[in-house]
């Protein structure tokens, strides 16, 4: 296996007295889907926001393409080629699809917004993702369904030839058909060579699209397993008790709780 494209080492994060992340390690490889799983409140979204630079890190290291990096805000992450689709979708309702996809990175010509070019590129990106459900890239996001918004958010993340994409529960609010589409999309992204991190509570989805699974238990990494060597039952056990058979956290750490 090749070098990891992104590595998080011994990351710690506290919110005041609450120690949300303990020495968390996460490894992301090119062309692979890494699933990040854990119960509600395990710290998955917090980990993502720490990597995005939305939340500050108390200690720990982020290594990107072999070099340690510090990411102070989302645009620095974007500059590195790391993109995020947040659980609480970050789209502006009053802007249209194109405007949202280019938000913060608008194309300009002679200092003036180049709307035509942006519209074309937005359409190309959606087409390359085989998105067929939005009729116009000039539609206001307020008028989109949940699945369409999710699609826009994902398209926004891959518009920039990004190298790593984090998807925080992208299918949580979706119906059967849209979930199918998003999962296919996730797999396609990895097949195109991106490193993909998928956060999900649905173990069947995880087993289907992910290559590797990192399980968080109360802010600690319980285990990192390959999906092909693992089962739904084992992952569920890791999520709920932090241990499964001989892998997982030491019993002491499990009992200690937070």
């Amino acid at each position: 296996m090749s070098e990891p494209i992104l590595e998080v080492r011994k990351l710690n994060k506290r919110f005041g007295p609450v120690h949300v992340l303990h020495d968390v390690d996460l490894t992301v490889y090119r062309g692979q889907v890494t699933a990040l799983v854990g119960d509600n409140g395990a710290g998955k979204s917090t980990l993502v926001k720490c990597i995005a630079g939305i939340n500050s890190i108390d200690s720990g290291e982020i290594v990107f393409e072999g070099h340690p990096v510090t990411i102070a805000n989302p645009s620095e992450a974007a500059r590195l080629g790391i993109e995020f689709v947040y659980q609480d979708l970050a789209l502006s309702d009053n802007l249209d699809i194109t405007q949202n996809m280019f938000l913060g990175r608008e194309l300009r010509r002679f200092g003036i917004l180049h709307d035509g070019q942006m519209e074309k590129k937005a359409r190309e990106t959606l087409t390359s993702l085989s998105v067929r459900t939005v009729s116009s890239v000039r539609q206001v996001v307020a008028s989109l369904s949940g699945g369409q918004r999710q699609t826009v958010a994902i398209a926004k993340a891959v518009l920039w030839n990004s190298k790593v994409v984090f998807l925080d529960e992208p299918t949580a609010a979706l119906g059967v058909a849209q979930t199918r589409q998003v999962l296919d999309l996730v797999r396609r992204l990895a097949d195109q060579g991106l490193g993909v991190v998928l956060i999900s509570h649905n173990m069947n989805d995880v087993m289907e699209v992910a290559d590797r699974v990192t399980a968080l238990y109360l802010g600690r990494v319980a285990a990192e397993v390959q999906t092909k060597d693992s089962s739904v039952a084992q992952i569920v056990e890791l999520i709920t008790s932090g241990r499964s058979g001989n892998i997982g956290l030491a019993p002491a750490a499990v009992n200690e709780g937070i």
Binding site: N73, A90, S92, L103, R105
Partner: peptide, 9 residues
């Protein structure tokens, strides 16, 4: 959406 704007840098 101020938070979305912030996350867009």
């Amino acid at each position: 959406n101020a938070e979305a704007a912030r996350r867009a840098g």
